[in-house]
Nucleic acid binder design. Structure first.
Length: 287
DNA sequence: AAGAGGCCCTGATAGC
DNA sequence: TGCTATCAGGGCCTCT
């Protein structure tokens, strides 16, 4: 599910609903995530106010107070949704009821003083919760992350320096979180189609124009996905349980054997495995 | 030492 | 229908 756009959309919804709210109760239903959920989250977070919620790469960070931060990673199948309790006039109330929200794999439930419950659900359990300290930017996993694709550090000189003497292909580079953080399998495929670059292309073959284009198209694709509320594949839902929309805009992801959507291209999208990940591209216009 | 591949886990789907 | 095999969006770890 969650690459940068999905996490960004989630962050914005959480900010609206939970900023400046106090955590009054934490229930841990199942500690088994990628790492055991620390019992200490209760002691550290209960009765504290959430000052802000931010995103770094695919990670959410709850800023609890000056010194305490809660990091949440959604792994492959993690979802967060909110249940608003005493909201009888909410026209969505019956809607929530009919949504058949998942509960079998609910791991953690955090209740706030505004009658909202935040539920973390994760069938495949690749996500995790971790407490970070004041200088969290210097802690793992944040310390290992490359620049945000929207940040000024993601520029031509940086990329040129990074790929110098590297033999990696462009798709794996885009998914390398040390290079640029937040891009996963779906959006790397999409970005490369916009760039007319074959995913297997070695990075030492990239021209200056190619690199500049990668910078522009990366921002474009991710921005558009954010505007559409992210992509819903399988179980990703927006915070209210409603599926997001960007998957309708996919150009290549999951489109094997269909005609290339590029105007005036008559190629057909192919699926290949690159480092054991499904990769989609048009062999005619992506070179 | 960079880069590829295996693996953690469950569920959905396909094929027999 | 009910079995088994295959495949999923991430990222850490190990091996070459």
């Amino acid at each position: 599910m969650p690459e940068l756009p999905e996490v960004e959309v989630l962050k914005r919804s959480l900010q609206k609903k939970l900023r400046f709210c106090k955590i009054i109760r934490i229930k841990i239903y199942n500690r088994n995530l990628r790492y055991k959920v620390p019992y200490s989250i209760n002691r550290n977070l209960k009765n504290h106010v959430v000052n802000d919620i931010s995103r770094i790469s695919k990670y959410l960070i709850f800023h609890i107070n000056f010194s305490k931060k809660l990091l949440i990673h959604l792994g492959m199948s993690g979802t967060i949704h909110l249940i608003e309790n005493n909201n009888k006039n909410n026209t969505n109330a019956s809607f929530y009821h009919s949504l058949d929200l998942p509960n079998k794999h609910n791991h953690i439930e955090i209740s706030f003083n505004n009658d909202i419950k935040m539920i973390y659900n994760d069938p495949r359990r690749f996500g995790y919760f971790k407490l970070l300290k004041k200088n969290y930017l210097l802690e793992k996993p944040i310390i290992n992350l490359g620049p945000d694709p929207f940040g000024y550090k993601f520029n031509f000189e940086y990329i040129k320096g990074y790929i110098y003497n590297k033999k990696i292909n462009i798709k794996n580079l885009l998914m390398d979180q040390k290079f640029v953080s937040g891009i996963g399998n779906i959006y790397s495929n999409e970005i490369l189609h916009y760039c007319k670059l074959r995913p297997t292309k070695k990075v030492n073959q990239l021209s200056k124009r190619n690199i500049l284009n990668i910078i522009v198209q990366t921002k474009k694709v991710l921005n558009k996905a954010i505007q559409f509320g992210g992509s819903s594949i399988k179980d990703f839902k927006k915070i209210d349980g409603i599926p997001a929309n960007f998957q309708k805009n996919f150009k290549v992801y999951g489109k094997n054997n269909t005609q290339c959507p590029r105007h005036s291209c008559s190629g057909y999208i192919q699926k290949v495995l690159i480092s054991n990940r499904s990769s989609f591209y048009c062999p005619k216009c992506q070179t």
